[in-house]
Amino acid sequence: MNSQLFATACMLLSMVSYQVSASFAKQLFSHVSPLTVTMFRLCFAAIIVIVIFRSWRILPKFKTLNWSNLLCYSASLGLMNLLFYNSLSHLPLGLAVGLEFIGPLGLALCSIQNRRDLIWVSCSILGIVLIIPWGQHNGNFSFIGMCLAIGAGLFWAAYIYFGHKVVRQNIGMHMLSIAISFSALLLLPLELWQHPHELFAVQYWWLGLTIAILATALPYALDLVALKHLARLHYSILTSLSPVIAALTGCILLAEQLTVFQWIALLLIVTASIGIAVSSQRPASD
């Protein structure tokens, strides 16, 4: 029981760490662009994971790797981060995370085999509908931000899809080092074209490093600890709480307020995600 509680605490701390990093990133937007913040995170994260996993040992295997899947995996990671940070410049943290969650949730919904699981489809659709302040003026909502967040979710789904393919290459956590490094390299030309001076704004590097640690190094370390003690179902259920934790983090650190309907929408998305996680553990039936 103690190990279960410890693992649960690690998972919750991991999610809080990630959302705190997002709140720091959002505050950094007043000084540099979301693209630059994305580059900060990816560049510092690449250095961190390469050192932690000593990924230079994978260099001799480069010629034998399936680079088509690795590049798709890397591109999905980079574009997921880029679109998510751009969505944060238009939406409250909780709404951006909730809408981004639609990507992996949709991927899971595509594999449903029980008709009764269609209720989770309904929950997710209703959640999206309630997030939008129909016919009301609401300064915390933007259709552009919505599209960016859902786009980030689609690339999150692609990241999961290609991740399943890359993991078959048996290169362990080195796949993460390669993905982060190459996603940074893929976005570098765009950064140098649009914001050639921001990337070298040394006064903001410490914030970029902090974001990378809170969004990458610390969550992955905590997740690895949690996975040793938590069943896959429990892990999935806890992960489903991310939108609510994001909304609470945005409320506390960024003073972002959501409407009652938007809170209900996030809870519906969380419910759909938990429902799919539970359904995936049941044998298929008509």
Rank of each mutant, 00 (worst) to 15 (best):
F143G: 00
I52F: 15
M80V: 04
G103F: 01
F182K: 10
I52A: 09
R116F: 12
A184Q: 06
P104E: 00
V129Y: 14
F101A: 00
N138I: 01
N114V: 09
H137A: 10
A157E: 05
Q113V: 03
R57I: 14
N66H: 13
L95S: 00
L154A: 12
L187I: 08
G94K: 01
F53W: 09
F141T: 06
P104H: 01
C110N: 07
I52N: 06
G103E: 02
L105H: 01
I47W: 08
A157K: 02
L187Y: 08
A152T: 04
Q136Y: 11
G135I: 03
S122T: 13
S76I: 03
G139N: 14
G94V: 03
N140T: 12
N140C: 02
S183T: 10
C72N: 12
S87V: 00
M80Y: 08
I125F: 12
I144S: 09
F182H: 08
M175C: 09
L82H: 05
S74K: 13
D117S: 15
A158H: 04
Y85L: 14
V129L: 15
G135H: 09
V121P: 04
G103H: 01
N86L: 02
L109D: 08
V166E: 11
P92I: 06
F40H: 13
L107H: 05
L130I: 12
G103Q: 02
C43W: 12
E100G: 03
I125K: 12
I50W: 14
C147D: 00
S89Q: 04
Q113I: 02
G145F: 10
I47F: 11
I128T: 11
Y159E: 01
R168S: 09
K165V: 05
N86T: 08
L70N: 14
F84C: 05
P133Q: 10
D117Y: 13
W120E: 00
I171F: 03
L83C: 11
I160G: 07
V129E: 05
T64N: 13
V97E: 13
I52Y: 14
R168G: 07
N114R: 15
Y85C: 04
M80T: 14
I178W: 03
G172I: 04
R41F: 02
L82G: 01
I180D: 07
G153L: 02
F62H: 12
Q169F: 07
Q113N: 10
R168Q: 15
L59G: 06
S111F: 15
I144T: 13
Q136L: 13
Q136C: 01
M173T: 02
N81K: 04
F141V: 12
R54A: 11
Y73F: 14
K165Q: 15
S89C: 00
Y161G: 05
R41M: 08
L109F: 12
G106N: 06
I128F: 13
F143L: 14
A75V: 11
F141K: 03
L186V: 05
W120Y: 15
N81R: 04
I180A: 07
C123E: 04
L95C: 01
K61P: 03
G103V: 02
W156Y: 14
G94P: 05
S122F: 13
K165A: 13
V49G: 07
A184L: 03
I50L: 07
L185Q: 08
G139D: 14
I132K: 08
L95M: 06
Q169H: 04
I171L: 07
I48W: 11
V121M: 11
A184P: 05
L107M: 11
H174M: 06
